[in-house]
Write a protein that binds this DNA or RNA. Sequence first.
DNA 1: GTCGAAGTTAAAGTCGACTTCATGTCAAGG
DNA 2: CCTTGACATGAAGTCGACTTTAACTTCGAC
Lengths: 145, 145
Amino acid sequence: MVTSELLTMGEVTRRSGMAASALRYYEREKLISATRTTGGQRRYERGVLRRLAFIRAARNVGLSLEEVREALARLPSSRTPTKADWTAISRSWRQRLNEQIQALEALRDGLDSCIGCGCLSLARCRISNPGDSAARYGVGAVYLR
Amino acid sequence: MVTSELLTMGEVTRRSGMAASALRYYEREKLISATRTTGGQRRYERGVLRRLAFIRAARNVGLSLEEVREALARLPSSRTPTKADWTAISRSWRQRLNEQIQALEALRDGLDSCIGCGCLSLARCRISNPGDSAARYGVGAVYLR
DNA sequence: GTCGAAGTTAAAGTCGACTTCATGTCAAGG
DNA sequence: CCTTGACATGAAGTCGACTTTAACTTCGAC
């Protein structure tokens, strides 16, 4: 049985493509964690790569680190998360992501549902404010991010 | 013939739902423009509402003001833009938007194509880096925004 | 034991997209 | 005329998500 080979900072930056400064930042923000050598250097478990993949994917589509943090908080802390655990998280974002997809499709298809319709009552428009749910995120356009 | 009734700052903020400070900012950034009264106050043409609707929709799905600026620059300056002009812009974003939609769908469907596949070679992964086109936007995850 | 690559920290800087602030001017009804 | 609410300006502040800088320390191959 091979017991937990830990990864160095350099290995993680190479394999995740993320900057060391970003990893330290994520650690300060409690999105990832690391053990330390006696000398104080970080050693990462391999699972961190999966977390980073998730963070990257979420950030990539415009979700905030805060949203990511909330999602990650729901992973089991006792055992190593399974694929099902990860899938559950993404599924729980279904509504949120669907709204965003709709807004993108409307924009792609010529804004027909907003600019095209001539409504221009931006405050209530479905594309400006998909699903009327944007209100939860604050006034106006701050739906994404 | 009613000749160009101009809109005041207050009217535009009410009808667009945007803050006055945002309108001034957009003007500094050359995204919109206004004429001035002799006293120096802004008067907007009605077309500004359509521009603002467009800006709002684009911002809403995560596009940057810089991208919006480039798009708006392609509107005819001589005549008032038609619906076709606006549609052409959104259509030209088709590829860009499609990639983003795909990334969202993958995330919604459980990240099966990235976290699920076990590849974890984030730097090249299709979901992290849709269409391999993200490279154009700089290193790594800075695809959106 | 030596040495260079790799790692550490706290603090400050950056960037986009606005907002807030302090202070002063305009517009229009009474 | 006068007042009051709407509007103007430049400068500074904010927020998220990192990066950069400066000044060390550790690791590990030799």
